[in-house]
Design a protein around this nucleic acid. Structure first.
Lengths: 262, 262
DNA sequence: CGTACGTTTGATCTTTCTCAATAATGGTGG
DNA sequence: CCACCATTATTGAGAAAGATCAAACGTACG
């Protein structure tokens, strides 16, 4: 497999040498990949670009041609109502596949946008489809990833639909904490969440003003500490309770997903 | 492929002879299946059972072993918060695959339950996985189905998160109308929606009382007519506007999804 | 050091919820 | 077919969570 589409990696950045490592490590967490599978992924012609905050990766209504993988930074997906109200449907962290959704669909049904500056690896749809055809095991891993994304989305529906602002916010904080931790990017003690309160509001289906008050209420109760965008959890256990957070839906434990299972 | 697990079809019911026809017709709408693909699906050992309203197909936390296809009736998927509040994440109509979600996951992250009495075809996970391995084209069709489900879910997040009760309800009515129509089960003029107002409330993240009032408000404005569970739309176009309904997210037009595309 | 963006706070308003009671409706056994 | 029971639908009155409007305060960055 040629690497002709790969941009010359800058020697300074370790991720640039093997930009898809972070994705492999994510997929491996929930599905077993053989060394050959991993090699096949590594061999994928990937073009890595550094994108500024707020850059669109996919715009609702566009015909998607690429598949992308987040290498560093944060991304969110989003869609808007007819009168312009925005809803953020999910936040992505390094390792996440960003638009597997569009792999077989004509037109993007939602937008994907950089939340911070970061590096994104682009792979053509055709390449990705070819990989899946050649390596059913990789195809399975990708499907599992897709299914887990859907599960996270379902929890999001529950969160927005049936929990009050405090619980809702606490739940989001716990989810991001656990996902970052699973990816080896943060501990349970806290992390930097690079979202403005307005973005948090759009993710939680609240108002920025109300997010501010809810944040304050959590802080007043000693459940979180904030300085700038850094959030720390003095008592993660209690925050989990307040956030009604049961991580089952993240499917971070895998048992049946072995390479040759069933 | 043997049919040993297939229950003896009752000659009275046309669906019983080829229970998976409805699923084939649904998959074909968004992905091209070859005659051989269709035969392979038809040959799947499927056990059809008639289930009473409210029967669970999958319960949150269970290890799922089957894949199921809705043949007749309605189904919904649902999950609950720690304090028992329920959120309905989606409603399914005949032809829908009900738990492809669980095909590779250990434990169900949500429950799937009969909304009405109906027939469900069960296929073992192992069989389904084998089919996907043998027929990449079918695997692709199933992935597309999964992706469309996810798209519907995203619109659900937007609907619940960012639209008021009137728009939200109108949107749901439009969506079900269009999905039923696409499946050849109803016209745009109206249909029977077998949901109680309490279930509607759980689907829309509202209160039953408020659903009742919102329904009344739509009826007062001549946007819908109700008798029992039958809903009719005197002016579908206007209802679509009120419901901010743009059917793109249903991905009912397919262009790139041909059997040998790309 | 000024401008733009983000945060914080107060006051008030609206949508939706809650509680409660009554009226239909549907199904069941006699 | 009727009376009864359980479920569902409808309506009213009051409460509450969260939204809206508006202003002030911080902070980062050119």
């Amino acid at each position: 497999m040629d690497q002709s589409e790969t941009l010359a990696p800058s020697r300074a950045d370790p991720a640039a040498d093997a930009p898809l490592n972070v994705m492999i490590s994510k997929l491996s967490r929930r599905a077993s990949l053989t060394p050959a599978d991993m090699d096949a992924i590594q061999a994928l012609p990937v073009s890595v670009r550094t994108l500024e905050s707020a850059t669109y990766l996919v715009r609702e209504g566009d015909p998607p041609d690429m598949c992308s993988v987040l290498i560093s930074g944060f991304v969110y997906r989003q869609k808007s109502t007819g009168n312009g109200d925005r809803q953020i449907m999910g936040v992505h962290i390094p390792g996440d596949l960003l638009d597997l959704h569009n792999l077989y669909l004509d037109l993007a049904d939602h937008s994907v946008q950089m939340l911070t500056r970061g590096d994104v690896g682009f792979i053509t749809r055709a390449r990705m489809q070819a990989l899946m055809a050649e390596r059913p095991n990789v195809a399975r891993a990708l499907m599992i990833d897709l299914m887990c994304d859907a599960s996270i989305l379902r929890e999001g529906v529950l969160n927005i639909g049936r929990r009050n602002s405090r619980t809702r916010l606490a739940h989001l904080l716990c989810e991001v904490a656990m996902r970052l931790e699973a990816q080896g990017l943060a501990g349970e003690g806290g992390y930097e969440l690079p979202m403005t309160q307005e973005q948090l509001a759009d993710a939680l289906a609240l108002t920025p003003v109300h997010v501010n008050r809810t944040l304050k209420s959590l802080a007043d109760d000693g459940l979180i500490t904030r300085s700038k965008r850094q959030v720390t959890f003095p008592d993660y256990e209690r925050l989990r309770e307040v956030g009604d957070f049961n991580p089952r839906y993240l499917h971070l434990q895998h048992q049946r997903t072995g390479a040759l299972a069933e």
